[in-house]
Design a protein around this nucleic acid. Sequence first.
RNA 1: AGAGUGGGCCGGGCGGUCGCGGCGCCGCUGGCGUCGAGGAAAGUCCGGACUCCAUAGGGCGAGGUGCCGGGCAGCGCCCGGUCGGGGCGACCCGAAGGACAGCGCAUAGAGACGACACCGCCUCCUGCGGGGGGUGAGGAUGGAAGGGUGCGGUAAGAGCGCACCGGUCGGCUGGCAACAGCCGGCGUCUCAGCAAACCCCACCUGGAGCAAGGCCACAUAGGGGGACGAUGCGGCGGCCCGCCGCGUCCCCGGGUAGGCCGCUCGAGUCCCCGGGCAACCGGGGGCCCAGAUAGAUGACCGCCACCUCCUCGGAGGCACAGAAUCCGGCUUACAGGCCCACUCUCUCG
RNA 2: GCGGCCGUGGCCAAACGGAUUAAGGCUCCUGACUACGGAUCAGGCGAUUGGGGGUUCGAAUCCCUCCGGCCGCG
Length: 129
Amino acid sequence: MTSAPTGQTHLGRLCRGSEIRNVLRGGRHFGGPAGVLKVKPGATPVSRLCVVASRRVGGAVVRNKVRRRIREIARREIHPEAEPADMVFRANHRAATMDFESIYEAFTRQLRKAKLLDRPRKQQWTGEG
RNA sequence: AGAGUGGGCCGGGCGGUCGCGGCGCCGCUGGCGUCGAGGAAAGUCCGGACUCCAUAGGGCGAGGUGCCGGGCAGCGCCCGGUCGGGGCGACCCGAAGGACAGCGCAUAGAGACGACACCGCCUCCUGCGGGGGGUGAGGAUGGAAGGGUGCGGUAAGAGCGCACCGGUCGGCUGGCAACAGCCGGCGUCUCAGCAAACCCCACCUGGAGCAAGGCCACAUAGGGGGACGAUGCGGCGGCCCGCCGCGUCCCCGGGUAGGCCGCUCGAGUCCCCGGGCAACCGGGGGCCCAGAUAGAUGACCGCCACCUCCUCGGAGGCACAGAAUCCGGCUUACAGGCCCACUCUCUCG
RNA sequence: GCGGCCGUGGCCAAACGGAUUAAGGCUCCUGACUACGGAUCAGGCGAUUGGGGGUUCGAAUCCCUCCGGCCGCG
């Protein structure tokens, strides 16, 4: 398992095994072609993300690439003023062969469902960017 | 021109926007500068450095290595050579000590190493069914049959005798040596293979591993030193002798993934000169070249290379693969490309 | 970072230097029995012994190397 450091302004790291298990067990489930996203209301003022890429995904190079792409998308698309959340993304083996555009579309759809692209209690903000 | 052998190297380049880690600086909720994966970072198959523990010594055992010389901190690695095998050749391959220390080698076969005769051959006897003796040349068995080839010899044969080729012993010459060449002796004794089967011989090996190990903060309460010792238990590399600890008394002050150190400057790398056939070594000068701690390199765009496709202007692709204490090797994976030396065949001059 | 075990027909597996078609069971196929099926009986198909290389007369077995899977310790 790996957890990615992310943009420190509004996206932190979720590293501890107990917290990760907590999110996986009790979080809301958002499926997608590249993997599963689990979200729970944040325990800290900033949102935190953990990307899980097991050996089923591929070798070290592939797993690093998937993890970095997910983290990059989250960094750019999650709104700084959204409700802080603890997230765990578990990548599957299909993520290894997908190009960046496909992963981008799939993951942003999951984030939109989780209402993380929006500013809370304000106007709808289109997440295209 | 075609086919091939050996060695070395590269592993897309330049620029821009956003983002990440280390270090340095500044006017420090940030900014600026700078550096930021590989030849294999991999497998973890060997060897070390480093750290802690153990070190009275000895015996048994276990594992590894195995032609010679050199290189190296060391190695099971590398270089050079010897011998054997393969290739027309350049070259390539080889765990390459010992089989009179022992033991074993299925089936077949008389016999697989001090034993022996199934067929055959020769000879003698005969009551013509066969029997006695000689032989190991021929056949048969087998992966392999107690040196090989030829001539002589003989009843038939056989190192029975001779010559040559091995083999072995001794000497001489060359070589540091493995070994090679030459000379002589030996067939009464001694002549096969397998030791990546056990085994013998020689040499090597203390145990763990950076989660080593150390420092700091905090809580339940544990450790260190000295003295005494029967059994039991545990530890010391597996076992034994042996040694140490657990037990009692006295004295003194502290162990765990939270943080910090170890943590990256090193048997380093590049250039030049010198020594050496070479591996490599010596000297001089230049350079600083990742240090994360759930683990930093990503995304997008433009131009130029390279490859493929076609509607000739575009589209797609661009290997294997990601540092975790650090080095030296080995092994394995790898799109495409470059350079050097050499060999064979054909053609032309 | 250390250390160990395993890989044999579709499945479970035996043989650990010795010939042979690499046992045996389940499954599957064919036949018998039955009105049909099951059970039973008889016969049969099915193997690069994880891949490659080496040692040997001979390798599933010994050695080297790679691949895959499982487990243990810190």
